[in-house]
Simulated assay, not measured.
Amino acid sequence: MASPAAFGAVESYLRDVWNVTPIYFENEIAEAPTNDLWVLVEMTGALYAQASIGGETADGNLWREEGTIWLHVMMPAFTGTSVGRAHAWQLAQLLTRQPIPELVFRDAAIGAGEPAFKIDGNWAAMTVTIDWQRDE
């Protein structure tokens, strides 16, 4: 799980800058929207660990959190991936240009469109994943 600080920073930033399609975050929707395209954001944490030694207390050391953000550009099934791929690329560019001071975004990858989440079989996802890091 990503910490509330990391998740909140990404959520605030994307809600402010992404106006191309509707955007939803984990556990916000019960069924697929009716829009042609929309984005579902998930954020996972893979590590939270002490990254330095020598502080007088554990809190005096550097702590590092790492994880991955998953941005699923959802599109109607069987419509190709060009538009979804373009939106995924835009989202990757928005984050990898280091716009959020608290986070460092690293490697990004755009995957192939495929049926996603079994939402009545009518949706495909073009997913971009981006590794991130936060120090405290």
Score class of each variant (00 low, 15 high):
A2C: 10
S3I: 12
P4T: 13
P4G: 12
A5F: 15
F7L: 12
F7T: 12
S12D: 13
S12Q: 12
Y13W: 11
Y13E: 09
L14E: 07
W18D: 06
W18G: 07
W18I: 10
N19L: 10
V20K: 08
P22Q: 02
Y24C: 11
Y24P: 08
Y24S: 01
F25E: 06
E26W: 07
E26Y: 08
N27R: 13
E28C: 03
E28T: 03
I29K: 05
E31H: 12
E31P: 09
T34C: 05
D36A: 09
L37K: 07
L40F: 05
L40R: 06
V41P: 03
V41M: 02
M43T: 03
T44F: 12
A46Y: 05
L47K: 02
A49N: 00
A49Q: 01
A49G: 00
Q50T: 01
S52D: 00
I53L: 05
G54Q: 00
G55I: 01
G55K: 00
G60D: 01
N61Y: 02
N61K: 01
L62V: 10
R64A: 06
R64N: 07
G67P: 04
T68C: 11
I69G: 12
I69D: 13
L71N: 09
L71V: 13
H72N: 14
H72W: 12
H72F: 14
H72Y: 11
M75S: 06
P76V: 06
A77M: 06
T79G: 05
S82H: 14
S82M: 14
V83E: 15
R85K: 15
H87K: 10
H87Q: 13
H87Y: 15
W89E: 15
L91Y: 09
T96S: 07
T96Q: 05
Q98K: 00
Q98Y: 02
P99N: 01
P99Q: 01
P99S: 01
I100M: 02
I100F: 02
I100P: 00
I100S: 00
P101M: 03
P101H: 05
V104Q: 07
F105Q: 00
A109E: 08
G111D: 04
G111K: 05
E114A: 14
E114L: 09
P115K: 03
A116P: 11
F117W: 13
G121Y: 11
N122V: 11
A125K: 08
A125I: 09
M126W: 13
V128F: 08
V128W: 05
I130L: 08
D131R: 13
D131P: 10
D131N: 15
D131H: 08
W132R: 04
Q133G: 09
R134D: 07
